[in-house]
Amino acid sequence: MIRFLSRLTPVLATAAVFLAGFVVCSLIYPNFASLRVVMNLLTDNAFLVIVAVGMTFVIISGGIDLSVGSVIGFTTVFLALAIERWGVPPLWAFVLILVICAAFGACMGAIIQYFELPAFIVTLAGMFLARGVSFLLSTESLPITADLYAHLSDHALRFEGGARLTVPALVMLAVVIGGMVLLHLTRFGANVYALGGSRTATGLMGINVARTTVLIYILSSVLAGLAGIVFSLYTSSGYSLSAVGVELDAIAAVVIGGTLLSGGYGFIFGSFLGVMIQGLIQTYISFDGMLSSWWAKIATGLLLFAFIAFQQLTLHLARRSRRAPAGVHP
């Protein structure tokens, strides 16, 4: 039990930071502590959480996916064109874009696996490619006026005090729960951790490393596509410059959530909290009304530093306590 808690320490620390931040905000702004603020936090950051869930899989397996922001941008442009210009029914457009994203992820995963290239380079190329293609499709911001969009943005679970749990937020919560089940309770999830622990050993244990790697990048790209759909619902438009730099926000959230950037350790729920902390800072800034929104970046940067230092410290302490009994036999 103590061991289990020690593995959870980074996530507990993230949760503590979030709660402390929330309490501080509530003390400064009396109407901060409301269901409405919390629900808005979920809706506003839904797409980022969805991407961060995929990124968590990738990072735990020892990889990285820099292409997700561009994939979101590409998705919004593709949806706007497909629905508005080419007359594709919105639901079919959703299916189509998810299939395209899956193929894109499969290609990146296969290149990483079979050409033994670093994920950083391959997904960097994917990032330029996806962004470039979306510019090729259109450089303008395209409004999406389909009925489904208007309908979906009306649809929400309503609570008293004007709080609404919107469709994007519901999708996001489903992805978080689904991601937790997949990562923590299935054979696939165990293989993802094993890959991050030792790639060669995983292969020698008879796990199909190639298949697992390709599936991980498919998952990340499909979730980026889903995040793109949610983003287009949220903005009711498609724009090739949308979601620039979101991959870095997602990586930051995953690391703040306690996942080790070198792979092997981490939790989906931590990444969720990591996004929520970033959202909390944004909300604080909008409540203040005077602060520049760039303060959000500065705060995120400082938090990242703090969390990485914290992780190294706990790792160091854990290793030291392990080494002590072994020292009996020099």
């Binding site: 951790y193 094993a194 622990g197 030792s198 995983t202 092997g264």
Partner: peptide, 14 residues
């Protein structure tokens, strides 16, 4: 040649 970060049980049955 096992995964050091996984539990003993996961390593036995991965």
């Amino acid at each position: 040649n096992l995964a050091p970060n996984l539990s003993v049980a996961q390593n036995l049955f991965l």
